[in-house]
Design a protein around this nucleic acid. Structure first.
Lengths: 117, 117
DNA sequence: GCAATAGGGGAATAAATTATCCCATAGCAA
DNA sequence: TTGCTATGGGATAATTTATTCCCCTATTGC
């Protein structure tokens, strides 16, 4: 596993939520799991720009942070289902606020962002 | 300036807000500017873990995204003041929700995060 | 003449994160 | 025997982001 060289600082709530929510696809993973897409293959279909690999990694981190659970069915071929924990569910309204702000300002943001790419 | 090699994807509101809010210190910058710390030196004092350089860079990006304004007073030594735009101000409640979730779950998060570092 | 002031930024490098490639499991079907 | 299935993961490369170091402005005050 990767070993940090620059120490974390966890001073305030913003630092803390940042730690569990950073990661290019984590927010989307939580969102889609909440919407009922619980199997890895479904999630990959919903997030085609992410490689299979990263999704696995980020799912594992979410699991390590008690935000999702992973249920492995002992069948072949394998079947796996992720679900939000109660703790993870408390993030949904937070994510919803983020998405809402983005949606409400969609046009403006789109042009601002594309201007400076 | 840096030229992206992997194209952006801006499908939904979450992608859009991510574009303007990602950056290690941006959220804190917005927060502190809103609290009244408007001069670069003040911001540096409030965020001592960030180098002067990154703060400048991220402030400039915030400015490019119309979230803050920069007023330069033509005096020597220079005096500069940042302020939130009306648009930037609409982000404050959003950031507040993030911080609140982090604060409410502080102990739990702290132990979860430190466990796997 | 020289330091202190408050701020800005280029270049090189380090660190962190994500992507790519390729192999593995275990049973069933053609 | 080969290929399909759904999933997992090691190794390494590429990309993105942040840090470090050092130099610059123009005035005031010693």
């Amino acid at each position: 596993m990767y070993e940090r060289k620059i120490p974390l600082n966890l001073n305030c709530g913003l630092d803390l939520i940042g730690e569990v929510l950073y990661g290019k696809w984590k927010i989307r993973l939580l969102w889609f799991i909440n919407e009922g897409y619980q199997r890895p293959s479904e999630l990959q279909r919903k997030i085609p720009d992410a490689s299979r690999r990263v999704l696995n990694i980020q799912l594992k981190e979410l699991e390590g942070h008690d935000l999702v659970t992973k249920k492995i069915y002992p069948v072949v071929p394998p079947k796996v289902e992720y679900a939000l924990t109660d703790f993870g569910k408390t993030l949904i309204p937070v994510i919803s606020v983020l998405g809402k702000w983005g949606d409400e300002n969609e046009e403006r943001l789109r042009s601002l962002i594309l201007k400076d790419s």
